[in-house]
């Protein structure tokens, strides 16, 4: 091969000897333009499926008993919004989810910190929690009804129960995985145990705790559906599962859509919080650049 290959557009086989062309990468229209292109590709499949679905419904291949069309779902969501039912359900569900999350997440955080900092704490209850973690929480619904009745308590406590474990596990591992060399250095420099716990261990465990909180918020939303089966008269779980709606696939699909939007919102909320709580974290610094 000769020096001509510098101008040749074709790739050069690795094993060939001689000159290998090195060309500058082709410039795209700028990073924002490239991102828009990537996003468009990402949307191709969902939008295509949506069109297919709408088409199948419009031309009668799928009946409304099986699946309502996307347009009907959208119309139903608008109706629910206008009538105020949607907002009412959201508020009722949010109150339950939030109360359950605060109780369960708070307990998980507390237990995780104690077990992370002290071996005694770990020995006392880590094994028990690991066992309870494996219990499917749907199985305890009847028990909760017997113990706590059919009002708000069993619903909130069920959500709380589901929230304990993700927060506990991530807090525990976050505290335990703080670099021991860092703790050692702090000890050498005379920091007290309390100062090390509050100024080093707590902030260093925070990224992991945030992961737990994120999981717990997701789990809180999911357990709403189960919790609101128990004698509920409001809430988005009730909306999806109440007897009158059981054949209304448009409502069910609308709630499913609502869930995915809520999930996105939770994610957005935590990403924003991360920017404020972890300004020192590599991922946050890189994003700010």
């Amino acid at each position: 091969m000769t020096i001509d290959s510098l101008a040749a557009p074709s790739a050069v086989p690795l094993a060939s000897s001689g000159w290998i062309a090195l060309r500058p990468a082709a410039r795209s229209a700028g990073s924002s333009g490239r991102f828009r292109g990537a996003d468009a590709t990402r949307l191709l499949l969902p939008v295509g499926l949506l069109l297919l679905w709408q088409g199948a419904c419009s031309f009668g291949y799928i009946g409304p008993r099986t699946l309502e069309s996307p347009l009907t779902v959208a119309r139903t969501l608008v109706e629910l919004t206008v009538s105020g039912v949607l907002w009412e359900s959201l508020v009722a569900s949010f109150n339950r989810a939030f109360a359950g999350f605060v109780i369960g997440g708070g307990l998980g955080l507390l237990l995780g910190i104690i077990a992370g900092l002290s071996r005694a704490g770990e020995r006392a209850y880590d094994a028990l929690l690991q066992m309870l973690r494996m219990v499917p929480f749907l199985a305890v619904i009847p028990l909760f009804v017997i113990w706590f009745g059919v009002d708000e308590e069993p619903k909130i406590l069920l959500i709380a129960l589901a929230c304990i474990f993700p927060v506990y596990l991530n807090t525990f591992s976050g505290v335990r995985n703080v670099d021991p060399k860092l703790i050692e250095a702090a000890t050498v420099f005379g920091m007290s145990r309390t100062a090390i716990a509050t100024q080093i261990v707590a902030p260093m465990a925070l990224p992991s705790i945030m992961v737990g909180v994120r999981y717990a918020m997701g789990v809180a939303l999911l357990s709403l559906v189960a919790a609101e089966q128990v004698n509920a008269t409001s809430g988005i779980g009730y909306l999806a599962l109440n007897p009158r709606a059981s054949l209304r696939t448009d409502i069910i699909l609308g709630v499913v859509l609502l869930y995915s939007v809520l999930g996105l919102l939770v994610d957005l909320l935590l990403r924003t919080a991360q920017g404020y709580l972890l300004p020192w974290h590599r991922t946050v610094i890189e994003k700010a650049r």
């Binding site: 860092l182 250095a185 050498v188 420099f189 080093i200 902030p203 260093m204 020192w280 974290h281």
Partner: peptide
């Protein structure tokens, strides 16, 4: 007082 420098910097990432 004693002070040390280790092989790794061992700085606290969450503090400026």
């Amino acid at each position: 007082p004693r002070a040390a420098v280790f092989q790794e910097p061992r700085l606290v990432p969450s503090q400026r």
